Computed example of a mutant assay.
Amino acid sequence: MKRNLREKTKRNIGLDLTRIFAFLSVISVHFFLNTGFYKIPLRGKRMFILATLRTSFMVCVPLFLLLTGYLVSAKKIPLEIGNLKKYYKKIIPVLLSYGIGMTVIFAIYRLRGDRSYNLQKLVFGILGYKEYSWYVNMYIGLFLLSPFLTNIWASIGDKKTHLALIAVFSLLTVGPTVFNVNDLTSLKAIFAAYDDNKINHLLPGWWYNIYPLTYFFLGAYLRTYVDFKKLRPAKVFLALILIIFASSAYNIWRSHGGSFQIRLWNSWGSLQNTASSICVFILINTLAPERVNEKIERFLAYISKLTFAAYILSALSDKLVYSFVNANLGSVKESMPYLPIIILSSATLALAMAAGVEFLTEKILEKSVREK
């Protein structure tokens, strides 16, 4: 009986691996931000490789959003005020980890001699989602909406209507990243350098910023209809490689030999990131074993749990690591051979600090429960 209970409660290794990979991809994207990549003309073999890597790592935020849709869509959350209150209380540990993480960042900056990091700046930093906290700003809204999104998904009883729902959201969010990024007045203009003032829109572009909802429903679709173990990972991997190379070539071409362009076509909700993120999500969960050694399972679960706080604290770990990198190794071209070491160093430091933050968060929550 205990063995059966153990099998039923066994964690989904694929989802833990997905979350860890998403976190490492976040830290990888930060490499380009902190080494001057966006200031250097996109010319030469080394810069082309870096552009391809940057394009590949942009699956980070979409993977987290797909995970949210995949996990939350399986829950039954009746739309009754008592159930909503109970569900909304689950965000308290997240907000507490966020607040403690930001406090650690500001405290370390202050100890390092930056007196501008005072209590007032900390408060406004937390409420203003400073450092790398824009994701928290977005996630709070997604969390509040998720019971209603889940019920919308559950209320639809057939696959075709689910696909219609996703098609509408994709049209509103993914569509503009393809059809609203060119000057269409002439053939010459299409191939000219990007100019914000000369872009023609073919689709409504106002709704682009609801792309987290598109990923939410895509995650729900993957949970509802996709059996990962029946898919061939070789085919998924081939599709991923083709998408990454096509996307990288397009990004390089649209940069026209200048610095790497961060535009709508390669934004979080773009076609290239949506397609590559779905492939990565499927690939990881197709290859992930159903069972692993219990110690390995617990280790992966623990690291997966730390990723949120580690993401917040990576603002600090990045500053510490890249102050050394830029002073001793040089800019992006010179530091490129050390990219894996640099990324793992920042990730490890962030995770180590996150372990302390999560420990403190749990103690505070335990104390508040006892006092009640």
Rank of each mutant, 00 (worst) to 15 (best):
E80V: 08
Y87R: 09
G125H: 04
W134Q: 03
S133F: 00
K86Y: 07
V136T: 06
R110S: 05
L122E: 05
Y38S: 12
L122M: 09
I140R: 07
I105R: 01
M138C: 01
I49L: 14
M138F: 01
R110G: 01
L71A: 05
Q120G: 11
A51H: 10
G36Q: 06
I92Y: 10
I140P: 04
N137S: 09
K130A: 14
L122V: 04
T35Q: 03
I92S: 09
V136A: 05
T35I: 03
I105D: 02
Y88V: 09
K130D: 13
I140K: 08
I40W: 04
F31G: 03
I40Y: 10
L79M: 00
Y129S: 08
Y98C: 09
I81E: 11
Y117I: 00
R46E: 12
R46A: 14
G69F: 11
F64A: 12
T103C: 09
I40H: 09
I126C: 02
K45A: 15
K45H: 13
F48R: 05
K130Q: 15
A107M: 06
V123A: 12
I91L: 12
I100N: 02
L67A: 05
D114W: 00
L50D: 06
F57A: 13
K89I: 13
I105K: 01
K76W: 12
V59G: 03
R115F: 15
E131R: 13
L42R: 02
Y129N: 07
D114Q: 00
A51S: 15
I100S: 03
S97N: 08
N137A: 10
I140C: 08
G82P: 02
G101C: 02
L111D: 03
P93Q: 07
F31L: 07
V61L: 15
K90M: 14
R112L: 11
L79F: 00
K39V: 14
R115D: 15
L67G: 02
Y109I: 00
S133A: 04
Y132G: 01
L122Y: 14
K86V: 07
F32W: 08
N34K: 14
N34D: 13
T35F: 01
V61Y: 14
D114E: 03
L42D: 02
F32H: 10
Y88I: 11
K45C: 14
P78K: 10
G36V: 04
V61C: 14
R43H: 13
L142F: 00
M102S: 08
